[in-house]
Design a protein around this nucleic acid. Structure first.
Lengths: 107, 107
DNA sequence: CATTCCTACAACCATCAGGTTGTACGTTAG
DNA sequence: CTAACGTACAACCTGATGGTTGTAGGAATG
């Protein structure tokens, strides 16, 4: 999911469709890239549950899934925790009372 | 810098050399990959300032730079802030009242 | 019905990161 | 000196990504 939001174009798309539905081509027109590229971005967002599509005539309207976005916010806390855990463990080593200079490396 | 710490092998290396110096080949022996691969990881860490090397005879001893690791921890707060900013902006859209029919969504 | 619009999808290209080999070179041990 | 070790670096492979083009098909319209 964060992978999905890691791309600025995708974040922009989410922001857009959260304000109102847009068809895929509507979205495609707004970016300096091909229709197919935007389509792929939407697909990624859809897989992540951040947006949903529903056909309406020959258009496919894209809508932002507010709930999932909020969930992302919550998930951020977890991701953050993971990083703090990693750095924390490393920092512990820095400060741990480990005997400083083990010349004869246990090998 | 977070790029440097985004790889688990590199995090492990940092943790190791923070506990005591190790030559590059010492490190290489500990991982199921080629010497050159480990060498590259060390190079990435060195470029990020997370470790430093100093020659001692024919060996190149690698040492962890505790200060930079701490800095990383601080930087984490900033990265976190960026994400919160992104998600925050997006969430605002979710809760903000639909733009009062500004007809041409003249972006 | 034929055309046009919107969409889906496959194939292909470039870039980047992590890995592997192979080679070159300085240093230390014999 | 020579051999072996430790290191540096270049070239190449692979998988993931973001992008492009090209093609095919469903839906509205004239």
């Amino acid at each position: 999911m964060f992978h999905a939001l890691a791309d600025s174009t995708r974040r922009d798309i989410v922001a857009l469709v959260l304000q109102g539905e847009h068809s895929v081509s509507d979205l495609a027109r707004r970016y300096p890239m091909s229709f197919a590229a935007v389509q792929k971005h939407v697909a990624v967002l859809e897989r992540a549950g951040l947006v949903s599509k529903h056909r309406q005539g020959r258009e496919q309207r894209v809508r932002g899934e507010a709930g999932t976005v909020r969930e992302a916010h919550r998930l951020l806390d977890q991701i953050e925790a993971v990083w703090r855990g990693r750095l924390g463990r490393i920092e512990d080593l820095v400060t741990s009372p480990r005997s400083p200079d083990t010349k004869g490396d246990s090998s």
